[in-house]
Design a protein around this nucleic acid. Structure first.
Length: 280
DNA sequence: TGGCAGGGTCATA
DNA sequence: TATGACCCTGCC
């Protein structure tokens, strides 16, 4: 834990602020020097940008190969994606604004629980609930003299009931969390199965979990499974689709798929970030 | 200080 | 298919 192990890669289409604050993840914090420290896959790393170089601190080469390359979606060509999406004028503006967004490949369980918590909630509170959950049940990790906690492993949450989660102050979502944990433990939702399903079936399967509706399901499919065809429709995207494309609420999901096809998820993320940051 | 909105979902009708 | 209710907190 000396912080010396460091990976440097050249990647133009990445900027920590955009990637970590576009709303896809909840466990990255800015350090005051534009670098971000975050917890994922039971590890703590720091990511920063220096010119075209992405520098990942506390990452042995093996971790980079096994975890971070996939986590940061390094092998996907974002330049190509942007070109493919640049037929849309508004999206061009949104992409210029959030040029450094990458869609992270987050752990399935963490992603599912996090977005269950996100329902009808605000970001500071979502982050607080996730931190309390991790502090209580996740493994402790020390990095640069500071204490962090991994997101809990579902199989180490044996016998968790709704009543045990009152300390989270998650409100009515506590029962959804407890239920989702049980679904994992019982093998009712299996990552590898969802991975191999067509998008619509994967969506339907996830919606079978209590507390998971179409929006949360699409967030999980996009931010954990990397399904770029998933198009999470939340209040911001509804506003964007209404204001930019004149679509009524009910038509937002269909409209997104029609406009952006297999890339609608990533288009959504540029639009969401741009719209939510108030530039629209 | 009060009142409302907040990255939806579920239960009813 | 369309309305409310819903835990709790941040923010104005």
């Amino acid at each position: 834990m000396n912080g010396i192990q460091q990976i440097e890669i050249t990647e133009k289409h990445f900027y920590p602020l955009h990637t970590f604050e576009c709303g896809q993840c909840f466990r990255w914090r800015e350090e005051g020097d534009k670098s971000y420290t975050g917890v994922a896959y039971g590890r703590v790393i720091n990511a920063r940008k220096n010119g075209d170089k992405l520098i990942i601190n506390n990452a042995p080469a093996a971790d980079y190969e096994n975890i971070w390359k996939r986590y940061f979606d390094i092998e996907r060509d974002y330049g190509k994606i942007k070109t493919a999406l640049s037929f849309d004028k508004t999206l061009r503006t949104a992409m210029d604004y959030g040029w450094g967004i990458r869609i992270l490949r987050q752990e399935f369980f963490e992603c599912l629980i996090s977005f269950i918590i996100s329902a009808n909630n605000n970001i500071p509170r979502i982050q607080g609930i996730i931190e309390r959950f991790s502090q209580k049940y996740g493994e402790k990790i020390v990095y640069n003299g500071k204490r962090y906690h991994a997101f809990p492993d579902p199989f180490r949450l044996e016998g968790i009931e709704e009543g045990d989660l009152a300390f989270l102050k998650a409100g009515y979502r506590a029962k959804y969390i407890a239920n989702a944990v049980k679904s994992f433990q019982k093998g009712e939702i299996i990552e590898e199965e969802i991975e191999s399903m067509p998008l619509s079936l994967a969506r339907k399967t996830l919606c079978g979990v209590s507390g998971v509706g179409p929006k949360v399901a699409d967030c999980v499919l996009l931010f954990s499974f990397g399904r770029l065809g998933a198009f999470p429709v939340d209040v911001w995207v509804k506003r964007a689709m209404r204001d930019i494309y004149g679509l009524e609420e009910k038509k937002a999901a269909e409209g997104g798929a029609k406009l952006f096809g297999d890339l609608s998820g990533i288009a959504q993320q540029y639009l969401f970030y741009w719209k939510r940051e108030g530039e629209a």
